[in-house]
Simulated scan of single mutants.
Amino acid sequence: GGWEQIPQQAYQLTLGNTSPAVVQLKRRLISSGDMPLVEYANDVFDAETDRAVRKFQARHGLVVTGQIDEPTWYAMNVPAETRLQQLYLNYTRVQNMAAKLNPRYVVVNIPAATIEAVNDGMVEQRHTAVVGRVDRATPIMASNIHQINFNPYWHVPKSLVRQDLTKYMLQNPNYLTEQNIFIYDGSGNKIDPQTINWANISDREVNYMYRQEPGAANSMGHCKINFYNPYDCYLHDTPGKELFGENARFHSSGCVRVDNVNKLVNWLLRDNGDWDQFKVDSTFDSLQRLDVEVKAKVPIHTTYITAWANRQGTVSFRDDVYKFDEQGKVSFG
């Protein structure tokens, strides 16, 4: 079985093009069920081919353009045997996890960079996410969401002070001021950033508190969603919404940024009794610092699923970003 590779010539083909490579492209799309079977595949990239390419892109979590762009070309040339292996491996992962699920939970799927809010087997909300890059991976774990911080301060982690802030300050000495980040020593005294030698920062200076004020530029955006874990990992809003439109959303330092997070906050607080969407949105807009305990203590699972089928039998695949498929990992203790 399997499917044939599509040639280099298929690259960048789009609706209206004519090329011998379209014949192979159609055969490839028919093999994976993205295009209905035809008796004779001609060399015209017609509306039906466009529909099939878009369906293929959607199944593989790619930006749906209808064009054979680079990510689409590469995804089409993954052998059927590799995809089959992926399905076996992920079936085992899902079986391992299924036993531990409550009726209501939040699941972050890292390879798909998506979040689902599930209730009684139905996905009630689906959110695009940005997750940890390969060298700062989002950890795999199960926990309970217990608190929402509205309009939080952001305390810059020590590792980022050393890795990132020093670099930014050398490039632009006003960076901290522009970002509304203030420095405090152990006694709570404000430190002037210009008194620090950013090219050779001391351990004592790294251990100061670097705190970003609430507001539009805050790295947490309007909220932070806390769950118990030893990794200082949490879900949060972001001022950088443009990343949600990308194919590969692996940009964070381990925490998970959530698109339309206000909707998820409302879903999490629904058992609190005194919250609705209007109240969530107006609290965001007010910039008021507020911490709210989540009555329901909703379970959260961060997972690693690169292949799955929905109830209609449509199979989806994602890239093995952290190379856990390659290692054959099925359980994440």
Results as ranks from 00 to 15, higher is better:
N207T: 10
D46I: 05
P193M: 00
V53W: 01
N96D: 08
S187C: 05
P230H: 08
K279S: 11
V330K: 02
K158C: 01
H301Y: 15
A112D: 11
L243E: 08
L290N: 13
V22Q: 10
C255S: 08
D34K: 00
M209I: 14
V315H: 03
K100F: 04
A307P: 07
I300V: 14
A217R: 08
K100N: 12
A80D: 14
T49G: 10
G61M: 06
Y175I: 02
E39P: 02
G16F: 14
A296C: 11
V134D: 09
I145R: 01
R162N: 13
Q327F: 04
E124A: 09
G245F: 13
I305S: 04
K224D: 00
V23F: 05
W154M: 05
G66C: 03
P239R: 01
N96A: 04
D276H: 11
V118H: 02
L37P: 07
D120C: 04
T238A: 09
L268N: 00
Q125H: 12
Q85C: 04
T138I: 06
D237P: 01
N174P: 07
H251N: 06
D120W: 06
D276T: 05
Y11N: 06
T138Q: 07
I68A: 05
S187P: 06
P230A: 10
R211P: 00
G245T: 13
A80F: 14
P103V: 12
Q95K: 15
N172C: 06
I148V: 15
S159H: 10
Y210F: 08
Y40G: 09
Q288V: 11
C255P: 01
T177A: 12
D271S: 14
P103Q: 14
R249Y: 00
T114H: 04
S286W: 03
Q194I: 06
D50W: 02
Q125L: 04
A296S: 15
Q212C: 03
Q85D: 04
N226G: 07
E293K: 11
N77Y: 03
A199K: 15
A52F: 13
R93M: 08
N151Q: 07
Q8W: 09
G313Q: 05
N247Y: 03
E124N: 10
F317Q: 01
Y210W: 06
M122K: 15
I68K: 01
N229E: 08
F227P: 00
N119C: 07
T302W: 11
R27Q: 15
L176R: 04
I191A: 02
E246D: 10
Q8H: 13
Y210G: 01
D276W: 01
S31W: 03
Y208C: 06
G240P: 02
E178P: 00
F324S: 05
P299L: 09
G16K: 10
G221E: 03
L13E: 11
H222T: 03
M141V: 08
N42G: 15
A296M: 13
Y231E: 02
Q163R: 15
T314L: 08
L13N: 06
Q85L: 11
L243F: 13
Q125D: 10
N260S: 12
N77S: 02
I30R: 02
R162Y: 12
A137R: 15
